[in-house]
Design a protein around this nucleic acid. Sequence first.
RNA 1: UGACCUAUGGUGUAAUUGGUAACACAGCAGUUUUUGGUUCUGCCAUUCUAGGUUCAAGUCCUAGUAGGUCAACCA
Length: 557
Amino acid sequence: MDNIDNSKESLNFIEQIITDDLSSGKHNGAVLTRFPPEPNGFLHIGHAKAICVNFELAKKFGGSCNLRFDDTNPTTEDPKYVEAIKADIKWLGYDWNEEVKFTSEYFDQLYLFAEDLINKELAYVDPSTAEEIAEQKGKPNIPGSGNVYRDRSPEENLSLFREMRDGKHPDGAMVLRAKIDLTSPNMLLRDPLMYRIKHAHHYRTGDKWCIYPMYDFAHGQSDSIENITHSLCSLEFIHHRPVYNWFIDKLGIYPSGQTEFSRMNVEYMITSKRKMLRLIEQGVVSGWDDPRMPTLRALSRKGYPAAAIRTFCDKVGMTKRENLIEFDLLESCVRDVLNETANRALVVEDPVKLIITNYDGDGEMLPANNNDGDETAGVREIPFGKELWIERKDFMEDAPKKFYRLSPGRDVRLKHAYIVHCTGFKNNEAGELEEVYCNYYENSKSGHDVSGVKPKGTLHFVPVNGGVPCEVRNLSHLFTDPAPDSHEGKDFLDFVDPDSMHANAAIMEPSLVGAEVGKQFQFLRKGYYCVDPDSTPDKMVFNKTAGLKGAWKPKGK
RNA sequence: UGACCUAUGGUGUAAUUGGUAACACAGCAGUUUUUGGUUCUGCCAUUCUAGGUUCAAGUCCUAGUAGGUCAACCA
């Protein structure tokens, strides 16, 4: 009916590559991507980008995505991470093609590949020490120098390599190297290591091997073995691509192709494994799932919906440029989801007592929409009473005209309840506000308001009779600087904000009792909150997920 | 004394492949609203610099400049 052409949706550079490959018939129309984590840590927001990219691209082009654990270093890897990573990927909303893959499943094949290259005189055993090898490689601007072991015969190399495999040599005694080009301007092409000796127990292959392939000799071939069509990785692997291609070419195996894109950096977040570990070790955070951490489990605990992280990764886009994404974009995605899905609730955090002098209906129950913007969210009942808790900052003795809250002589609506007129207040000896007094308009009940009074503001409240104590954890950025690890000569820990988590006692409406862990709510006028696993039957604990946008602030604050 | 990658508003991405800078977030102003939320509207860049080709350049050429990356028996 309309002729608007929406088909010109622009493709990012990788989609363009895939589209081109598809039309040239490069992989017979197949699209198979993969997400290849090393099981040595928990997934974080940066991984989320890689996961979304690989799974979404596969989905978009009718292909699928493998999950492969890149487990070639038995001394740093652990099966507990395999399970954690699988769980986090599922939480994010993705499911992998067929069963989970492991690079360690290909150790036999990889070994055969190595012998093949030895036989082709393209690999040799080198007994040089790590230092000697580093020296041979030269410097980026100085070509590497000759190596006497390069010219060993295939027979000799084969027998030495087998001795390595058979455990005849200690760790570090020798390595297998690819014979490529010691003078290449690309350091990685200066005869890269293929295998090293590691007498270590592997969590999957046990003690079968005492030699393990290096990343460069495992990754490309693993892609190839799985018939991965598009191997996507971050920019720092760009110099590895020639190595990747060299092995595939010399081995004559399935031509998987690598494309690099820039990793996503987010303000106030640090994703280096070592640095995250330091935060934990120094006790800055309580663990990998501390809601201030950038790990997926932490973000989930903080209340971030998986869908929000997905749209975030999508909105961030896809290029080869360095980037630092504003934290606001992430929060905006979170609010977008939560605004629609989170039920509203009334919680008062810094209470002061409001007494409705002319009200006598204590115990009255009032219907309250769970989400004014969504009728299907249903209705709950909230208690009302003569004495209520309201937020301390919702009253001001000498208020500016723009203050749409309580002040002597002003009217305000109590959400879901009545309009009240402020008649006075009382301070304690210290001069602090202790009680606020009001009269209510009997005919102003929500839904039946015939009072004709039109107050500017609406307040939330919890009745003294019926309110339930709880804990609210207000979280802010872990760092005082958006890029704490970008300052020369300064440690990122120097930017830790010691005050990034505030646990406050609060009072909540009774309907929140027993809310399930992980459930998100919007505390009206306050923000989005999520039930923390630390909650007990006696005391609910909530993490602040995100505040609402642009709250009015009195001058000077 | 090298090689590679990148350069568009505050941020992140677009621009039908040479046709007159678009979207989102943030910000500001206004609208709607029984959440100072939501909604909706408006405003906010001549594309790193300097030359050049062209009727026309963010897109092409040349020379610069800036940022990033590359040597671990890590991935």
